[in-house]
Each structure stands twice: as structure tokens, then as C-alpha cells.
Amino acid sequence: MISYELALPYSLEPGWLAPYVEALQKGRAMGRSCSKCGSVSFPPQRRCQCGSGEAQWVRLSGKASVLLRTHGSDGTFGLVQFEGATNKAVTRLEGFASEITDGHLIAPPSDVPALILAPSKSRSTP
């Protein structure tokens, strides 16, 4: 048996995703608006489903509604729909009671661009 530990200190450049990553580190949502069909993707897609690669970065509200959720020892995650986005996203759900479906993006605890949703309680109370 050989015990061997490998440390891998990556320096990851986000490239075309830089506006998304930088905004996310502050808890903000930057999506891509297709110049051809107007679809907005968040998380951003480099090429729109319509086929066009021309797009502008747009700021979204960061509000989202939870469509599906899973919980267990791996944590709580949801398939969510961000306000203003055409596609859906998978995010971590933090502090979501089962009846809460509305949330908003929050800044991750480190500078890692994690997608974390916190509940927007006021909007969900019947």
C-alpha cells in the first residue's frame, strides 16, 4: 500500500463565463440574452437553442421559483426557474421549508461560483 496525497491548486479562468462568475460571487444573476430570438439563458449558454451565438449580458432579478426538489444526506437541491430566464437551473436550496417555493440567489460563502437559493418568505406566505 502506498499512501500518496496530491494537492491540485488550480487557477481557473472562467473565460466567456467571466461576467456570470463575477456577478455570482456577489449573489447577482447575469444571464445571456440572444441577439436573434431574445431568449435569456441563466445559467448562461454560449450558444442559444435557436442556434445563434450572438448575445448580450443582462442582469436578472435573481428571483426563482422551485419546480422540483430533492433532499437527503447529499443536501437539498432544486430544479428552479429564474425570473426572466428561458432555461431552468439546478441550485442548492438553503433553509427552504417544504411549502416554500419562491427564493432568491445569494452570494456563496467563498468565491466559488455556487448557485445557492435562499427562501423569499414574504412572497410565499399565503
Binding site: 422540483l68 430533492t70 443536501g75 437541491f77 439546478v90 442548492r92 461560483p113 448557485l115
Partner: peptide
Amino acid sequence: TDGMTGTSATALYAL
């Protein structure tokens, strides 16, 4: 997105 968020394979399969 998934990796940096810490989403597990099991969670994605579950959804």
C-alpha cells in the same frame, strides 16, 4: 454550475 455548487450525481439523477 453543478460542480461548483456541490450538486451530487445522486441529486441530479433524483431530480
